[in-house]
Computed example of a mutant assay.
Amino acid sequence: MKEHKSLWLVWQNVNTRLFYHVGTLSFYDNQYIFQYTYQSDGPQKVNDALRNGYLLHPMFPELKKEYKSTNLFGAFKRRLPSEIRVDFQGILNDLHLTENYSDMELLERTRGKLGSDQYSFEKPLKIYDSVLKTSFYINGMSYQELPENWYDILKSHKNVRLQLEPENPVDENAIAIYSEFDVKLGYVPRFYSSGISALLMSGMSPNIKVNYVNEEASPSWWVKLDFECEVPTLTKDGLSNLDPIFEQVI
């Protein structure tokens, strides 16, 4: 079977702190493809981002073009740690990657983020046999009142729960994340929130657990979660409340 991987290119508005899924990078049949999400006019896509201060990436200046390359685009390749770094093997170990890693795997694990840069790569929502799956890092942990030993707790108690916050002043689809002991850890990344909140409001019960914890990393990489949730048959008839899923599953 040919490898088919995809990642969302996410841009953050530094003024509002809101995130937008502006493009999708795919790898299939030994070819990389990048395309903006211009076909959707939904929230947190590129058209919405353009209305809120986003400028197209200078290496990809045409909104409706499908960019193709047999090698990872240079604009994205430079976001990966260099193989000549003396600590590169340690980086692979920390990311749980073997020496046979692919650029897409390395981009996924590092998120391709450079310091205070406004871009990152995130794992998309995908449906496998009527099960929606993804993994993500908890957002906003540094703003919560966490116990001093929060990392030890999460390493031994891996179940977490989600709670809708419809009165949240920033995002009506905001989803808070709580530990087994009802400690608020942070939030589901906003570029997933409309899709996942649609599932929750439809009465679905996701299975969400801690994948790994790295308390020595920057807060954006402290805790990674695995998310799975069964979804109804994805037909538009009678499922208008699940429309955000159609917008977010690429």
Rank of each mutant, 00 (worst) to 15 (best):
N52R: 14
N52T: 05
G53D: 01
Y54C: 05
Y54W: 14
L55H: 13
L55R: 14
L56C: 13
L56E: 07
L56N: 09
P58V: 05
P58G: 03
F60W: 04
P61C: 10
E62F: 12
E62A: 10
L63V: 06
K64P: 01
K64D: 10
K65Y: 12
E66K: 12
Y67S: 06
K68I: 00
S69C: 10
T70M: 10
N71V: 09
N71M: 12
L72C: 07
L72S: 06
L72D: 05
F73S: 02
R78F: 09
R78V: 15
L80T: 15
P81F: 07
S82M: 09
E83F: 04
E83P: 03
I84M: 11
D87F: 01
F88V: 07
Q89P: 00
G90A: 02
G90R: 06
G90Y: 04
G90Q: 10
I91P: 02
I91H: 02
L92A: 05
L92C: 04
N93S: 10
N93A: 09
N93W: 03
D94V: 05
L95F: 12
H96Q: 08
L97H: 07
T98C: 02
N100C: 06
Y101Q: 10
Y101F: 15
Y101E: 08
S102Y: 06
D103R: 07
M104F: 14
E105V: 08
E105I: 11
L106H: 12
L106V: 13
E108K: 15
E108S: 11
R109Q: 15
R109E: 14
T110M: 04
R111V: 12
G112T: 15
G112E: 13
G112C: 13
K113M: 03
K113Y: 00
L114K: 14
G115A: 12
D117C: 05
Q118W: 04
Q118A: 11
Y119K: 06
Y119G: 02
S120I: 05
S120K: 08
F121R: 09
F121L: 12
F121E: 13
K123W: 09
L125Y: 01
L125P: 00
L125G: 02
L125S: 05
K126V: 14
I127W: 00
D129K: 13
S130P: 00
L132M: 14
L132E: 01
T134C: 08
S135F: 04
F136M: 12
F136R: 06
Y137V: 02
Y137S: 03
Y137R: 04
I138Q: 05
I138C: 08
N139S: 10
S142E: 15
Y143H: 14
L146T: 06
E148R: 11
W150D: 01
W150N: 04
I153K: 10
I153S: 05
I153E: 14
I153L: 13
L154T: 03
K155N: 15
S156L: 15
H157G: 00
K158M: 13
N159W: 07
R161I: 14
Q163K: 15
L164C: 06
P166I: 11
N168A: 00
N168V: 00
V170T: 13
D171V: 01
E172P: 03
N173W: 09
A174E: 00
A174L: 01
I175F: 02
A176E: 04
I177Q: 06
I177A: 07
Y178P: 01
E180Y: 11
E180L: 11
